Lab assay of single mutants.
Amino acid sequence: MLDDRARMEAAKKEKVEQILAEFQLQEEDLKKVMRRMQKEMDRGLRLETHEEASVKMLPTYVRSTPEGSEVGDFLSLDLGGTNFRVMLVKVGEGEEGQWSVKTKHQMYSIPEDAMTGTAEMLFDYISECISDFLDKHQMKHKKLPLGFTFSFPVRHEDIDKGILLNWTKGFKASGAEGNNVVGLLRDAIKRRGDFEMDVVAMVNDTVATMISCYYEDHQCEVGMIVGTGCNACYMEEMQNVELVEGDEGRMCVNTEWGAFGDSGELDEFLLEYDRLVDESSANPGQQLYEKLIGGKYMGELVRLVLLRLVDENLLFHGEASEQLRTRGAFETRFVSQVESDTGDRKQIYNILSTLGLRPSTTDCDIVRRACESVSTRAAHMCSAGLAGVINRMRESRSEDVMRITVGVDGSVYKLHPSFKERFHASVRRLTPSCEITFIESEEGSGRGAALVSAVACKKACMLGQ
Rank of each mutant, 00 (worst) to 15 (best):
Y125L: 04
F171P: 00
Q465R: 14
C382K: 00
R422C: 13
E28G: 13
S281V: 06
M115F: 06
Q24S: 12
H317Y: 08
T103Q: 05
S321A: 13
L165G: 01
N254T: 01
T49E: 04
G183L: 04
R36T: 09
G44E: 00
M462F: 15
R392I: 13
K136V: 07
L314K: 08
G72H: 08
E67K: 15
A460T: 15
A454Y: 01
T168P: 04
F84P: 00
G223W: 05
E236M: 11
M34W: 14
A378H: 04
G258A: 01
T168N: 04
R85N: 01
D124S: 05
A6V: 11
M34R: 09
E157S: 04
A53T: 05
C252H: 03
M87Q: 00
T82K: 05
L164E: 02
S76T: 03
R250H: 15
R428E: 12
C461D: 14
G328W: 11
S212R: 00
Q219S: 12
N179E: 09
T206K: 07
H137C: 13
R7K: 12
A329F: 10
M87E: 03
V241S: 06
V367K: 08
G318E: 13
M202E: 01
F334W: 14
S398V: 11
S340M: 13
L304R: 13
G407E: 00
S433A: 08
S280R: 14
V408P: 04
L463H: 13
S340R: 11
K420H: 06
A320G: 15
E440S: 12
P145M: 15
G410E: 05
H317P: 07
E28F: 09
M37I: 09
Y234G: 01
E245A: 15
V244W: 00
L415S: 07
Y413R: 00
K458D: 15
V455D: 13
I189S: 01
L306H: 00
R392G: 09
V207Y: 05
G318A: 15
T206Y: 00
T103E: 13
Q323S: 14
C457Y: 12
A114W: 09
K458P: 15
R303W: 04
N283P: 03
N231F: 01
N180E: 02
F334V: 10
V101P: 09
Q287P: 08
L451G: 05
G117S: 13
H416V: 07
W257F: 04
I404V: 09
V374P: 08
L88E: 04
G178K: 02
E312K: 14
H50T: 06
E17W: 13
M393D: 00
S69P: 12
S212C: 06
I130T: 00
I126C: 01
F133G: 02
I436K: 04
I225L: 02
M197E: 01
M87H: 15
D29S: 12
R325F: 14
E196F: 03
R192F: 01
Y61T: 05
D3T: 06
Y413P: 03
Q323F: 13
G407V: 12
L270V: 12
F23V: 10
R46G: 13
R46H: 14
E196P: 05
